[in-house]
Design a protein around this nucleic acid. Sequence first.
DNA 1: ATATATTTTTAGACTAATCTAAATTTAGTT
DNA 2: AACTAAATTTAGATTAGTCTAAAAATATAT
Lengths: 220, 220
Amino acid sequence: MLITLTEENYLKAIYHLGQKSDKEISTNAIAEKIEAKASSVTDMLKKLADKKLISYRKYKGVTLTEKGRLTAVDIIRKHRLWEVFLVDKLNFSWDEVHEVAEQLEHIKSPKLINELDAYLDFPTHDPHGDPIPDKNGQIQRTDKITLSQAVINQTYICVGVIDSSSDFLKYLDKYNIGIGSEITVLEREEFDQSITIEIKGKTVVMSKIISTNIYVKKNI
Amino acid sequence: MLITLTEENYLKAIYHLGQKSDKEISTNAIAEKIEAKASSVTDMLKKLADKKLISYRKYKGVTLTEKGRLTAVDIIRKHRLWEVFLVDKLNFSWDEVHEVAEQLEHIKSPKLINELDAYLDFPTHDPHGDPIPDKNGQIQRTDKITLSQAVINQTYICVGVIDSSSDFLKYLDKYNIGIGSEITVLEREEFDQSITIEIKGKTVVMSKIISTNIYVKKNI
DNA sequence: ATATATTTTTAGACTAATCTAAATTTAGTT
DNA sequence: AACTAAATTTAGATTAGTCTAAAAATATAT
């Protein structure tokens, strides 16, 4: 079944609005997100309901069907993979990627996106730290990432470790890193992927192998 | 001025049809290329003429204006750069790239295409050997390329050399390579960009530095 | 609980791109 | 030169997506 570019944008908007709560999404909320009039949204909701992409109850709002959810998640997957490509390969900064990715996310070619995924070494998060759904539409539900995947100038909370050997834990003690620590990533050296962090007012340079073994989550 | 995706496809079709001859392009020829009815084409020609992208004389046919030509060439540039990306980076074979590139060529972002160009190391030809216009719309008018840029399983005619030192010409004599020789490229070793060619029934392995100094053209 | 405000839907109209069928212009033939 | 065939344009209709204005349904407030 062919889904138009406009329909894809509606599905994506409904998906994102649905992340905040479990309630049905209102016509007005969609209109605001899409930047269209409520009457236009109503028309589109009828089309999406005809295609079984949403459940629509007049005056009550909509929810995505499983088919609609998978479609939305696939677009988000493409969007985030392209963002990684733009930043990692084409020297875009993380604040420049969104509008280009908005265009690229609509390119239709399963081979393209699977090869891109492999070429980027199967990234799990986009440059903003948002999780990239896998090809089955599964999303890493937890928001923990390894410190090696962290974004520059963002503050994180340490939530766990992978390697729990004595040597590794001694290293963490030495630098006052523990569960609950606030860590700000200041810089990443592209050559060896080492990072400079701020921890309890001190700056520390940390190799890739260390940062890969620390779980953090965004400090919101 | 905003040019729609459909308008871009018309401009591209007119450009390609114009390559065969210098005459005005007929409505029917465009209709066949675009796979639309002649009446639809007439409507679109009026729009393109209003936007000063073509010169249109009723019943006589059309030619691109300079503005129209530059627009068409820019789309072709993007198409061919994306083809190089797909083949060089994403393991597409040269016969798989066209339809994906047809989608990618419409992405609008000057930074994207310039960064992609640099990332691909400023290729001059696409995987089919067609020249890639530069960012000013200039096209390498001659169809000669270096043997190092040649496509696998394509037969070429040698049309010249770059290095004309005695040592280099002796090398060419040794393998019976001269102006007018038929050369078929059998294989390219990605590691060192050496190539295996067939020349007068014999196969020869040739390093990158040699193949870079031989001009060939497609054998049509 | 009834009036008022807000939200949502319907009705009718517009634009871009397409189509079919009819009319018009150009080209070809004797 | 006149007549037929082919190419092109015009006229009117259709679909997707949008809009404004009016009508209908739901929510809110006293």
